[in-house]
């Protein structure tokens, strides 16, 4: 991938209007729902599994180092009915942008991977999909 990876923008807004927290498996209190962040990177792996599909995304940080982010979505059946995703929605090498809520600063980083609770996803084809709420 010669394409220069985009930087990470973590923009903190004072508003907290989103109340559709679901991701309870890994603790709803993990996320800073007052804050918004965007990551763009290359798909390393996509695991279509219950209870949460897991997307590993290689993202370049502002120092130019690649960091792997772990992004989890609503359960497979919800994503399937809501937005028509399946196990081959993302393939290694795809370019993806995720817009969502970052973790609270107080939450320890798990397995060395940062995370984001996704709200909108810019797909490899360029279309923007709202994944929270997931449409049904």
């Amino acid at each position: 991938m010669k394409r220069k990876a985009l930087a990470i923008f973590l923009i903190v807004f004072g508003c907290g209007s989103v109340s559709t927290a679901v991701f309870a498996h890994h603790g709803a209190s993990r996320w800073d729902t007052d804050a918004w962040g965007t990551i763009t990177g290359t798909v390393k792996e996509f695991d279509w599994q219950n209870p949460h599909p897991l997307l590993l995304l290689d993202v370049k940080n502002d120092k130019g180092d690649v960091e792997t982010w772990a992004v989890e979505f609503h359960p497979p059946n919800v994503m399937s009915r809501g937005v028509g995703w399946n196990h081959s929605t993302f393939k290694p090498g795809d370019q993806v942008t995720i817009y969502g809520h970052p973790e609270k600063k107080s939450v320890p980083i798990v397995n060395g991977m940062k995370s984001l609770r996704p709200v909108k996803v810019t797909m490899p084809g360029g279309q923007v999909v709202t994944v929270d709420p997931p449409g049904y």
Binding site: H26, V107, P108, M113
Partner: peptide, 12 residues
């Protein structure tokens, strides 16, 4: 590749 264990939110 990786297990994502629960973060220790209770102690955060």
């Amino acid at each position: 590749v990786e297990a994502i264990p629960l973060p220790d939110v209770a102690n955060a």
